[in-house]
């Protein structure tokens, strides 16, 4: 492991290999970024992003930011991108959005703004940096990159560090609150208790199923209640609306039946 670190450090220190590495990786990263915008499927975008992140991790290590490079791989490419993929699974891996723009002028304005922004930033960078030669981190990293960052974090930036910890906890809580959903339907226990506590006990045993005492196609024949009257609720509302229900009065149990007996 240590060998790998030192190898990386040596890469960063020598100029030509770094340039080679940059000119290979940077165009690929830009290409991947453009690809992110044009691919249809979100999962492809995610993979392209992962590629960009790994490239960046290598750039970090090349620039004497060993700790950040590793964190970039572990946290970003490892955790965050996995989270993205996880959500993509949840939403649907195959979900592919149409690329047709439906807000008038949005795309044109976006590209114009991007061109302007990019041009101005490039111009500014050119004006600001040109005469400088990098100081390099050899001195700062003399005790080791991790130790150096730790030194900074726990002395100068300790207050920000604590605040960030509070932020993390808040974010975790927030995610939990957001992701939590109340139960969508009441439980069977709740429903049965409610039936017994309701105003009338007529439906305590549940609605009578249709087709009881069927003499016809069962579904459109209403059930009879224990007292012999017709239970109108036992017929599907759809059938009722369609007019496919048979008039229920003939099925009522009349006292005449008792007379026959």
């Amino acid at each position: 492991m240590h060998n790998l670190f030192s190898a990386a450090l040596t890469i960063g220190a020598t100029k030509t290999p770094e340039a080679v590495q940059f000119w290979i990786l940077a165009p690929l990263a830009v290409l991947a970024a453009v690809g992110m915008l044009v691919v249809k499927k979100a999962v492809h975008s995610a993979l392209l992003l992962a590629w960009i992140m790994i490239s960046l991790a290598i750039f970090y290590i090349a620039q004497d930011a060993l700790f950040l490079g590793i964190v970039q791989v572990v946290v970003y490419t490892g955790a965050v991108m996995m989270l993205f993929l996880f959500i993509l699974m949840l939403v649907g891996v195959d979900s592919s959005g149409s690329l047709v723009e439906n807000i008038k002028g949005q795309r044109g304005a976006a590209f114009a703004a991007a061109l302007g922004l990019g041009g101005l930033l490039t111009s500014l960078i050119g004006r600001a940096i040109v005469p400088h030669e990098a100081i390099g981190l050899t001195v700062s990293n003399s005790a080791g990159n991790v130790q150096g960052i730790a030194q900074e974090l726990f002395t100068q930036y300790v207050w920000a560090f604590e605040v960030v910890s509070a932020l993390l906890i808040t974010a975790a809580l927030g995610a939990m609150v957001l992701a939590h959903t109340p139960k969508s339907s009441p439980s069977q226990r709740f429903l049965s208790t409610a039936r017994f506590r309701g105003e009338s006990l007529s439906a305590t045993a549940g609605l009578a199923p249709s087709g009881v005492f069927a003499r016809h196609n069962a579904v459109d024949v209403p059930a009879l209640l224990p007292d012999g009257s017709v239970a109108a609720e036992s017929i599907s509302a759809t059938l009722e609306a369609r007019g496919d229900m048979i008039v229920s009065t003939p099925f009522e149990m009349k006292p005449q039946i008792e007379e026959e007996n």
Partner: peptide
Amino acid sequence: YVRSYALIMALGALALVA
């Protein structure tokens, strides 16, 4: 549309950089 708002933000950033 949240994208429009984002675009306006981008334009604002552009103005700032300009």
